[in-house]
Simulated scan of single mutants.
Amino acid sequence: MMDTETKLNKAGEAIAYLLNRSRRDDKLYYQIGFGTEAFRLLTEAHAALTGEDVAAVEKRYGA
């Protein structure tokens, strides 16, 4: 069984992958990009895991 830190690292990697991938894939961005519930949840989770401000994460991945 994985420890909590490993689980959080894996979750963080998955979240960052989706946010980065959506910036390169227009079809994916349409589904999970700025203005969607998925985007809100992903950016809030990313901010919580990294300690960043949600607004900064939204700005980085929203355009």
Rank of each mutant, 00 (worst) to 15 (best):
A16Y: 13
G51R: 08
L19Q: 04
D53V: 05
F34K: 15
Y17V: 01
E44C: 04
K10V: 07
Q31I: 10
M1P: 09
I32P: 02
L49K: 03
L8Q: 09
Y17T: 03
Q31F: 12
E44W: 01
Y30A: 15
V54Q: 08
K59S: 15
F39I: 02
A55T: 08
A47N: 02
A56R: 11
L41F: 13
K7S: 04
E37A: 14
A63C: 07
M1Q: 10
E5W: 05
A11M: 12
A38W: 11
R23Q: 14
G35L: 09
K59F: 07
T50Y: 06
T4P: 00
T6F: 00
A63I: 06
G33M: 02
I15T: 10
L19S: 05
I32A: 06
L8T: 03
A48V: 01
N20H: 12
L49N: 00
D3I: 04
R23Y: 00
L41H: 13
A55M: 09
T50S: 12
K10Y: 07
L28R: 07
I32D: 05
A56S: 14
R21W: 08
Q31Y: 12
A16D: 10
A45G: 11
D3L: 04
M2R: 10
G51H: 11
L8H: 06
G62C: 07
V57E: 07
E44R: 14
A38I: 05
Q31L: 13
R23D: 05
R21D: 04
L42D: 03
K7H: 04
L28Q: 06
A38V: 08
F39S: 04
E44K: 13
I32F: 10
L42G: 06
L41Q: 14
A45P: 02
L28A: 02
D53F: 04
R24M: 11
A38K: 11
K10H: 00
R40K: 15
H46W: 10
A14Y: 04
L18T: 01
L28S: 07
D26H: 09
N9Y: 12
E44M: 10
E52K: 13
F34Y: 13
R24W: 00
Y29M: 05
M2Q: 13
R60K: 15
H46P: 01
G35Y: 12
M2T: 06
Y61A: 00
G12Y: 01
K27D: 12
V57Y: 09
V57M: 09
A14Q: 06
L42R: 02
G33E: 02
K10A: 12
F34T: 02
R40P: 00
V54T: 13
Y29F: 12
G51N: 05
Y17F: 13
T6I: 02
V54R: 11
Y30F: 13
D3P: 00
K10S: 06
E37C: 08
